[in-house]
């Protein structure tokens, strides 16, 4: 039976919302935390999917922005909880425990770093682009390891989750509500972006860069803007992820995390609106259920990935809808 993609999308989002609500009823707060983790990973992957799915750019260093978001949260919250000042070159601040402020900083920093990385890495393409983004990821990873002021290899713990006006973020379902709402808003904006002239031009640039130039579009500029938007979204996800765990560490910059983001997009469906959400849900479910049985649960993830790549190139959404690509 083939399902329509809007129906699949609705079921996926409804499912992600229903699980924590059910967990709330049966008093299973850990399940709510799992759903929150899935929503945040999905958000990060939605960011990457703009680059990968629309722009066709395989960034193997997207954990950079996840980590920047995480460290933006960690550093601001650390200074706020220790009542110390954060000395920046032009001004000093005492940090903050306000989530909206942290999100803005995380997104702004991630976007700025994405702009710089994009300027350099988009001079290349194909395997060289993959390698240069990976190299940037490793640079940030090793920098974080050696950054003793903020925990170095041990990372940085935040004692109390940051606050959001009108909500108690320590209550799991309320924090899930924040993450789920942000995910829904981002999905809505991503859908609008994909259908906009910018999104279409980016898609066209993926198909035939030279031809795009003859209609007056600069493919490098299109990809750079996509890179910046993508980085900002992934940075926001990083800040939420750090808040979920109340902990940041260099692993947020790791190439394994970049790879996992790509894997869960492929599992869900590259370029599909809900591909990252399905992928993140499957990833978190496997991590939890199989991870409890064996530490080698990645083997099963690998088998699923192999099956998807070999037999279902549109990902899970492709299998459910019978469409390999968004337009087919």
């Amino acid at each position: 039976m083939r399902l329509s993609e809007p129906l699949v999308n609705t079921i996926v989002l409804a499912g992600l919302l229903a699980v924590p609500l059910y967990a709330l009823v049966v008093d299973e707060p850990f399940t709510i935390t799992l759903a929150t983790r899935a929503a945040i990973l999905a958000l990060a992957a939605v960011g990457l999917n703009i680059l990968l799915g629309i722009g066709g750019l395989v960034s193997f260093g997207h954990a950079v922005f996840f980590g920047i978001g995480g460290y933006a949260m960690g550093i601001l919250a650390f200074h706020a909880q220790t009542y110390t000042t954060l000395d920046l070159a032009v001004f000093t601040t005492e940090g903050t425990k306000s989530m909206p402020v942290i999100w803005l900083v995380a997104m702004g920093l991630s976007a700025a770093i994405a702009f710089l990385i994009g300027l350099l890495s988009l001079r290349t393409s194909g395997v060289y682009f993959i390698m240069i983004t990976l190299a940037f990821g490793q640079m940030f990873f090793y920098f974080a390891i050696s950054w003793a002021q903020y925990g170095g290899e041990d990372g940085l713990s935040i004692y109390v989750r940051n606050g959001f006006p009108g909500l108690n973020t320590l209550v799991p379902i309320q924090f899930f509500g924040i993450c789920f709402t942000i995910l829904c808003i981002t999905l809505f904006l991503k859908a609008r972006l994909q259908a906009s002239s910018f999104g279409l031009a980016l898609n066209a640039a993926r198909q035939t860069p030279a031809r795009v130039e003859t209609v007056g579009l600069n493919p490098t500029r299109l990809k750079l803007l996509a890179f910046v938007i993508s980085g900002a979204i992934t940075g926001l996800a990083g800040a939420l992820f750090a808040d979920l765990n109340r902990f940041v560490s260099p692993t947020m910059f790791s190439w394994q995390l970049s790879g996992e983001l790509i894997v869960l997009i492929i599992i869900g469906g590259v370029g599909r609106l809900m591909g990252p959400v399905i992928g993140a849900c499957i990833f978190v479910a496997l991590e939890h259920f199989l991870g409890g049985l064996t530490e080698f649960w990645h083997v099963y993830l690998g088998i699923i990935l192999l099956c998807i790549v070999l037999f279902g190139r549109g990902g899970v959404i492709g299998l459910l809808t019978g469409k390999v690509g968004a337009h087919v």
Binding site: S197, L200, N203, Q207, T208, V215
Partner: peptide, 18 residues
């Protein structure tokens, strides 16, 4: 010709619109 194969007719036109 070299149209943007994965885009619809409308999307091909919108992508180039000025």
């Amino acid at each position: 010709r070299r149209c943007f194969a994965d885009l619809t007719v409308r999307e091909n036109l919108i992508a180039a619109a000025r």
